[in-house]
Amino acid sequence: MAFSPLKNDTFLRACWRQATDHTPIWLMRQAGRYLPEYVATRARAGSFMGLATNVDYATEVTLQPLARYPLDAAILFSDILTVPDAMGLGLSFEAGEGPRFAHPVRDEAAVARLAVPDLDKLRYVCDAVGSIRRALDGQVPLIGFSGSPWTLACYMVEGAGSSDYRLVKSMLYGRADLMHRILAVNADAVAAYLNAQIDAGAQAVMIFDSWGGVLADGVFQEFSLAYTARVLSQLKRTGADGQPVPRIVFTKGGGLWLREMGELDCEVLGLDWTVNLARARAAVGESGEKAKALQGNLDPNVLFASPEVVAQEARRVLDSFGKPHTDVAASGPTHIFNLGHGISQFTPPENVAALVEAVHLYSRALRR
């Protein structure tokens, strides 16, 4: 599979802990409702799933933020719940309500029916990956992604988002055998799904453990971390263009377990805004085979302040990481700038421009 040569590899170099001339930046949910052009495209598509399942629309919205901002990576436009949808759970999105499953998994029979889905049901995602790679024409790398086994299980059992996780935690504590069965199927499905994205052209892959932080200490390790590790152990290491593919793990609320997450077989750890980057560097370690690049971690609500405050807070995040690695002959600690969670739909687009400019300018100054 032939793709255009990469013109900006700053993000990938940072993933591999190689020196870069600036700190790369991309944003979780960067193609989304804060952009008027996205809203217009979604209106043409008729629905969120109409947007996500149409290759041309998915390609268009993935590239929209790159037309506005000099970001250092693109991320596939899709949803974390495509895998359980392919399992037959009936995903839909109601306006103002978020995702919902018609057939939640709440009893032994429903758990027994679960299986790794036929990846042909997710062909639209892989077709979008290839289309986006071609449309990018080497401008920046493309990131593929999936939800983590635990995060998918939360939605599958609850049937929708949740404020208290009562149903999924009731199963976890009351029928741990069923929960382990769900997580095992999810882990193998996520691995197959991410490998399909890699084969289609994804140049990095990210696992979103959005709800790992709702678990108790000890429970997180057994029901979330272990199954994320199971996914990572199955991932392909080489992409469609023959280049190595870095793996990113982001656990919202995972700051308590940084040392254990540092043992994961991945290249990058994403951090939410509650974590100090310098302390994270110390916890994860900066040398040896298991050393990680760090990604994050501006509070997304900073983007509601003035552009001056946005720039100030961006500099604060860069300073909290510390002096950038500049030795081109060796690997060392590296940072990928991002938000601590997804960008809000109410974010002023001009503030994103202020953020990207501040990160690029200040991180270059730090390297002089």
Rank of each mutant, 00 (worst) to 15 (best):
L298Q: 06
L152Q: 00
V302Y: 07
A40W: 00
Y165W: 13
V140N: 03
V231T: 08
A112M: 00
T151C: 00
V61C: 10
R237N: 14
A2Q: 13
R113T: 02
L122C: 04
G255P: 12
N8S: 05
G332R: 10
G50S: 13
M156P: 13
M179G: 12
G242F: 02
G32K: 02
R106H: 09
Q64S: 10
C154Y: 05
L71T: 04
F304A: 11
E60D: 14
I143V: 14
E357M: 06
L271E: 05
A160P: 11
D21W: 05
G322I: 01
P141A: 04
G332A: 07
L172T: 08
A187K: 04
K323E: 15
P244I: 00
P104R: 06
A311V: 10
R133Y: 06
G322H: 08
A67I: 04
I182M: 03
L119I: 07
V185N: 10
L167R: 13
Q221T: 12
Q64H: 12
L303K: 04
V284P: 13
A112N: 11
T347M: 01
V125L: 03
V352W: 05
A240M: 07
E158D: 01
P24E: 02
S320P: 06
A153M: 11
R33G: 08
L235S: 03
Q197A: 01
P307Q: 04
T53E: 15
T274F: 10
L215G: 09
R279Y: 13
D209G: 11
A74F: 01
N301D: 14
E94C: 02
L183G: 00
A204H: 09
D299W: 11
H325C: 07
V249H: 13
A189H: 13
L122K: 05
P84R: 02
L339Y: 03
F11L: 10
V284Y: 09
L89T: 06
W273S: 03
Q203P: 12
F93Q: 10
A45P: 13
L81C: 11
R106A: 08
L114T: 04
E260G: 09
A73Q: 12
D241W: 07
Y173V: 08
A196M: 10
E94R: 15
V231P: 12
L66I: 06
N8K: 14
E313F: 05
H325M: 03
T10G: 09
